[in-house]
Amino acid sequence: MGRNAPLSGRVVLLTGADGPAEAMTRRLLSQGARVALAGAVAASAGLATAPGSRVLALPCNLDSPAETGRVVDTVIDRFGRLDHLVNLVATRTCPVPLMELDPLSLSHTLQRDLVMPLAWTQRAYWRWMAAHGGSVVNVVANAVRDHPQDTVLAGLTELTEWLAAELTPQVDVHTLVPNPAFATAAYQAGITDVLPDVLTRRGNRIRGPVLVLTEECVDPPRAA
């Protein structure tokens, strides 16, 4: 890794579900970034404890918007900047019809997968990106199929479109989602591969705020 690495000198805050967090962190480090991990991702084995690590682990309550302020402030205090925010959105499987779904369970899902990504974005924007620019990428952590996750994905798509329009040109906002036929393991490998390009807007993969990742991992089209 040299000074010309795409993310050299930049700071990435990775929040949310664990899933592919460790592989994504290693990929970001290989591209020159310093990485802060918040929430479940902070427990990624071996990344934050090595001497001289460029990784900062910040355990926090991912159900509390108030925690975002403490984490973002700590990242900027320790690393001096915050260029990129990556929210890993869990979208865990809940295979029951909506008529049988506990409304409180759905409320918790929406809090975790929609409200919290917005809370992280707001704090990062007002604390750093409004003045210095940056990017936000929401990453659906698992390949999901049907069930209530479709509601979350629809909401996340709308949120992304709204934020992208509101924050341009100062901040780029994107969401990475899987093609419905994509297996989870292949999808997680794919997002690890494309994430640096999405953060830095390199190549021809970036076509609109919502990007659907295919098995080819090349040129994901804009979601309908």
Score class of each variant (00 low, 15 high):
residue 169 P to I: 08
residue 11 V to S: 07
residue 171 V to L: 00
residue 145 R to N: 09
residue 131 A to P: 00
residue 14 L to W: 08
residue 148 P to R: 13
residue 37 L to T: 03
residue 57 A to W: 01
residue 143 A to H: 00
residue 150 D to V: 12
residue 1 M to C: 04
residue 50 A to P: 00
residue 5 A to D: 12
residue 157 T to D: 15
residue 158 E to A: 11
residue 2 G to L: 02
residue 163 L to E: 06
residue 193 D to L: 10
residue 122 Q to I: 14
residue 173 V to S: 05
residue 177 V to A: 07
residue 141 A to I: 02
residue 111 Q to S: 08
residue 216 E to Q: 15
residue 31 Q to N: 05
residue 135 S to Y: 11
residue 144 V to R: 09
residue 204 N to A: 15
residue 142 N to A: 13
residue 39 G to T: 05
residue 31 Q to A: 08
residue 48 A to L: 04
residue 23 A to D: 04
residue 9 G to T: 03
residue 64 S to H: 05
residue 110 L to I: 11
residue 138 N to C: 04
residue 183 A to K: 14
residue 61 N to R: 15
residue 158 E to Q: 08
residue 78 R to T: 14
residue 187 Y to G: 01
residue 95 P to Y: 14
residue 48 A to T: 05
residue 166 E to N: 08
residue 50 A to Q: 10
residue 145 R to C: 07
residue 160 T to I: 09
residue 216 E to T: 15
residue 64 S to Q: 07
residue 158 E to D: 08
residue 159 L to I: 06
residue 109 T to S: 11
residue 91 T to M: 12
residue 83 D to P: 09
residue 11 V to W: 03
residue 133 G to W: 09
residue 111 Q to G: 06
residue 154 A to E: 10
residue 192 T to C: 13
residue 32 G to T: 09
residue 108 H to A: 11
residue 198 V to P: 01
residue 115 V to A: 13
residue 17 A to W: 05
residue 20 P to S: 14
residue 202 R to I: 02
residue 118 L to A: 15
residue 216 E to S: 15
residue 163 L to I: 01
residue 143 A to G: 02
residue 215 E to M: 15
residue 203 G to L: 08
residue 27 R to V: 14
residue 90 A to F: 07
residue 191 I to F: 05
residue 101 L to H: 01
residue 195 L to M: 11
residue 51 P to E: 02
residue 155 G to H: 03
residue 43 A to Q: 13
residue 207 R to A: 15
residue 32 G to W: 10
residue 31 Q to G: 01
residue 81 R to A: 13
residue 117 P to W: 13
residue 63 D to L: 12
residue 144 V to G: 06
residue 2 G to R: 08
residue 32 G to Y: 10
residue 183 A to G: 12
residue 37 L to F: 04
residue 222 R to M: 08
residue 27 R to D: 06
residue 153 L to W: 07
residue 141 A to C: 02
residue 30 S to M: 06
residue 56 L to G: 01
residue 67 E to A: 15
residue 106 L to D: 04
residue 29 L to E: 04
residue 80 G to T: 00
residue 102 D to K: 04
residue 149 Q to K: 12
residue 210 V to H: 09
residue 165 A to V: 09
residue 156 L to N: 10
residue 59 P to I: 04
residue 64 S to D: 13
residue 72 V to Q: 10
